[in-house]
């Protein structure tokens, strides 16, 4: 069997804010269909890394290649059009719109239009189907509620549905599970597993290690902007550097 193709290659990525090195010389490869977990203590540069990959922040140095194409410093909308979608840690719905209308925005994007070959039909109907897929009960008319009236669990699902609407090749989930109950997490995990089964490559930033380690192929650990460990969930959990970063060292 051939080893799967590299979909994303990050080389020596650096970003400083003032004197703080948020991300320093981080490199990693991501193969097609893989689920990579990125963990690390607070302020270790995880979200900055996501912002760099998705173009919301421009890197000081280093390169990002997606499917062999250099996308370093590209604006977010071009990166999305190429096939990288992301969720935000702090959910960003359009609060005044009904939930399903939130999905009309990504469904309007050039990427979706291109994938549909110019025929995109009724966006509202597609939106309602997508919301059902992420667990908005159709009978209860949750999809028609204004986003500001939805509880956190639904907002997180809405955030996920907004990415799914873009049909990305690479999905970057920034702490999708944070602020959710165990039951809510248990509801979302099967959706992510289904996406993986459909062949989507996924990067998950997560604090909920237990849930992450169950589904991740590979885990990368960041601390103070540097990569301190990488490997299968089991090996990472045993690594001394990780224990030190999370629990602190005596010395």
């Amino acid at each position: 069997m051939n080893s799967p193709a590299v979909i994303l290659r990050v080389t020596d990525l650096c970003k400083s804010f003032g004197g703080v090195r948020a991300v320093s010389s981080v490199s990693f490869d991501l193969s097609d269909g893989e689920l990579l977990g990125i963990i690390g203590p607070n302020g270790s540069g995880k979200t900055t890394l996501v912002n760099l990959i998705t173009g919301f922040i421009k890197p000081d140095a280093g390169g990002i290649r997606f499917r062999g194409k250099d996308i370093t410093g590209w604006p977010p909308y071009r990166i999305v059009t190429l096939g990288i979608a992301r969720t935000f840690q702090m959910v960003r719905p359009f609060y005044q719109l009904p939930a399903y209308k939130n999905l009309v925005v990504p469904l309007y994007s050039p990427r979706v239009r291109r994938l549909a070959g110019g025929k995109y039909g009724d966006r509202d109907a597609v939106a309602l189907d997508l919301l059902e897929e992420v667990g908005f009960e159709r009978d209860a008319y949750v999809s028609y509620k204004v986003a500001s009236a939805l509880p956190q669990g639904y907002l997180k699902r809405l955030e996920l549905a907004k990415c799914m609407a873009l049909r990305p090749d690479l999905l970057v989930l920034d702490e999708l599970f944070s602020g959710l109950s165990l039951a809510e997490v248990a509801g979302i995990v099967p959706i992510i597993e289904k996406l993986r089964f459909q062949g989507m490559t996924i990067v998950m930033i997560e604090h909920r290690l237990k849930e992450l380690f169950r589904i991740a192929d590979r885990v990368m650990v960041l601390n103070y902007g540097e990569k301190i460990a990488e490997g299968s969930p089991e090996t990472v959990m045993e690594s001394d550097a990780v224990k030190k970063a999370y629990l602190g060292s005596e010395t």
Binding site: Y77, T81, R92, F94, Y95, V104, V105, Y108, K162
Partner: peptide, 24 residues
């Protein structure tokens, strides 16, 4: 229209529109 939805979305939350692959 759906176009207007995007326009109002930019006012509401421009980063969300950006991450939906639209050039605001």
């Amino acid at each position: 229209s759906d176009y207007g939805l995007i326009v109002r979305g930019i006012n509401d939350n421009d980063r969300a529109v950006m991450s939906a692959g639209l050039n605001i």
